[in-house]
C-alpha cells in the first residue's frame, strides 16, 4: 500500500523565522507514529500543513497521494485534534459532537457515547464553560469516534489527569486493533506513550533529528556507570551524548548499539549497564542538538 503522507523538502517560513526547514518524511498506513520534539520545534506547524490549515512556503506534500489543499477526498479521511481548537461560544458539548458526527463519514455514535461516559462529560454544558481537561476530552472523543483513516492528535491531553490519560491510551489501542488506521501522536509525555508508538519522528529546530521504528530506537543507546577513570577509558572515542558525575563515579550515555566486544571490555572493567528509554534518548538528543548541531546523526 502506498504512503499516507509524503513530504519532500517541506519548508514553512514566517518572515525571517523558519518553523519547518527542508523536511522530508513518509508516513505509512496503519501505524501509530510519535511526532516528538521540544516546544517550538515545528511539530504543530507540520500537522497544520498536512491538514492544509497552513500553507507551505516550499516543498511538496502529498496526503493519500494528493495535495491536501481544498481536497474533499483527502480532508474527509483526515481528523486533526489540536490543543488550540476553537469552538463557537454558543455551542454546547452536544452541539460540537453533533457537528463532528456530520463532518466525519466514519463516525461511530455508539463509541462516542461510551467515551462520553468514560470521560464523564456534561453534554449540555457550553464549551466556553468547560475546564481545560474537559476540553481535551471532547477532542479525544472526536479523534477516536471519527475513526478517520488519518487521525492526528496534537497534545491531546492538556489538563487531563493520569486516569483519563490512561483511558485514552486504552481506548485508542482497543479501537486501533479493531479498526486499524494511521495515527500521528504529538506529545511531551513520551514515556507514557512510548509503548504505543510503532514509529518515532523527532523534530528539532524545524528539522528531522530522528526517523526510526520505535523498536530499533529502544536499543539505540545505553548508559554505563562506574568509577570516573574507568569510564573515561571506556568512553574514549565513543559517541557520548550525555554524562553525569556522581561523587567519584560517572554515568555516560553512548549513542550506539551495545556490541559484544564493548560489553566484554566494560564487564572486565566492572562497569554497569542500563538501558535508555525513548524519552531519555530524545531528551539527550534534543538538549544536545541545541548545543552542538547534529553530531552523531
Amino acid at each position: 500500500m502506498s504512503a499516507i503522507v509524503e513530504a519532500k523538502r517541506l519548508t514553512k517560513t514566517y518572515g525571517s523565522f523558519t518553523a519547518v526547514n527542508n523536511v522530508s518524511f513518509t508516513i505509512e498506513p496503519d501505524k501509530i507514529y510519535g511526532l516528538l520534539g521540544r516546544n517550538g520545534a515545528g511539530k504543530t506547524t507540520i500537522m497544520h500543513l498536512i491538514t492544509a490549515q497552513l500553507f507551505a512556503s516550499s516543498g511538496e506534500l502529498l496526503v493519500f497521494g494528493q495535495e491536501p489543499y481544498e481536497n474533499e477526498r483527502v480532508l474527509r479521511q483526515t481528523c486533526f485534534i489540536k490543543e488550540s481548537q476553537k469552538y463557537p461560544d454558543t455551542f454546547r458539548v452536544t452541539d460540537v459532537l453533533g457537528t463532528a458526527a456530520m463532518m466525519f463519514p466514519n463516525w461511530d455514535e455508539g463509541f462516542a457515547k461510551r467515551l462520553l461516559t468514560d470521560f464523564n462529560l456534561p453534554l449540555k454544558r457550553r464549551m466556553k464553560k468547560l475546564s481545560r481537561g474537559m476540553l481535551s476530552s471532547v477532542g479525544i472523543i472526536i479523534g477516536l469516534a471519527s475513526r478517520a483513516p488519518l487521525t492526528i492528535f496534537d497534545e491531546p491531553y492538556l489538563g487531563l489527569d493520569a486516569v483519563a490519560r490512561n483511558i485514552f491510551y486504552e481506548r485508542l489501542m482497543e479501537d486501533y486493533a479493531e479498526f486499524p488506521r494511521t495515527v500521528i501522536l504529538s506529545t511531551h509525555l513520551i514515556d507514557e506513550v512510548s509503548k504505543l508508538l510503532e514509529h518515532v519522528i523527532v523534530i528539532d529546530g524545524g528539522q528531522i533529528l530522528l526517523d526510526e521504528e520505535a523498536d530499533s530506537l529502544r536499543g539505540r543507546a545505553y548508559t554505563v556507570t562506574g568509577p570516573s577513570a574507568k569510564i573515561d577509558a571506556y568512553a574514549a572515542g565513543k559517541p557520548v551524548i550525555h554524562q553525569e558525575a556522581l561523587g567519584g563515579s560517572r554515568a555516560v550515555t553512548v549513542f550506539e548499539r551495545l556490541g559484544a566486544t564493548d560489553q566484554k571490555q566494560a564487564e572486565a572493567l566492572g562497569l554497569q549497564f542500563s538501558p535508555v528509554t525513548i524519552q531519555q534518548l530524545i531528551v539527550c538528543l534534543t538538549t544536545r542538538s541545541s548545543e552542538q548541531k547534529g553530531a552523531y546523526l
Binding site: 481544498e70 474533499e72 480532508l75 476553537k86 463532518m103
Partner: peptide
C-alpha cells in the same frame, strides 16, 4: 470568527 476555525478544524474545505 467563531465558525471558520471551528469548521476547518473539522476537516471542512474552505469552499464548502
Amino acid at each position: 470568527q467563531h465558525t471558520f476555525p471551528f469548521a476547518l478544524g473539522f476537516s471542512v474545505r474552505r469552499r464548502d
